[in-house]
Amino acid sequence: MLKVTALQKIYNGGASAVEAVRDLTFELAEGELVCLVGPSGCGKTTLLKCIAGLMPPTSGTVELAGDSVTAPPPDMAVVFQEYGRSLFAWMSVRANVELPLKEKKLPKERRRELVAQSLEAVGLTAFADSYPWQLSGGMQQRVAIARAVAYEPKVLLMDEPFAAVDAQTRADLEDLIRNIWQRLGVTVLFVTHDIDEAVYLGERVLVLSSSPTVVQDDITVDLPAERDQLTTRQDERFTELRARVYAQIQQAKNSAAPAAAH
């Protein structure tokens, strides 16, 4: 479904060139939910933007369902890390969520339905007519999530979407994402800093090394499909996987340039 091959991205800003990503190769099967973890500044956002067709890679390719990605593909939604700047301050919450649907030329009835559903799902029904700047950071983040969910994408890219919400809301949103994923069969690539979250959410966890970035480890999460905040997190297998991801991240942080990726 989504295939990233030998992806390299060098930023050529001014005097110095920054190699954000060196050599990334991985693949997501259709309908897979994969979590991406890696040290801060290792190029996760860069990778997502290349996948989203917002930025051309320096070398390497991104393929979506067999087609090379050169522009933002239809049926893909991105939840940006800078959620505040990604919402349009001049539009109400409802209008923010509805705008992409309008561009998708959905009939009015359907749009209203999708907006209502997705705002309900993130618990913001009462704030539909507020403006984003009247909401807290966590609420803004949920608006951005609602917008992506309402879009009904085939591929969903999320860049630390739960960074600004409290633990309880976070747990609810995690279940929401799994629920949507199971219901709509969408392919999800989910960036997070939280190891527990990566293991709880993902079917697979990709660990990136620190810069120069390569895929350091690719861990299959063989937990049952039905997950529960309490029981899953107490599962012995959960603890093992968690420890493994933790060890990999430690290694990624410590070794500036890992000799062998994997």
Partner: peptide, 13 residues
């Protein structure tokens, strides 16, 4: 804002 611009582009505007 580049993020707003990218958001718009990624949603097919």
């Amino acid at each position: 804002d580049p993020v707003a611009e990218q958001t718009a582009r990624s949603y097919g505007l």
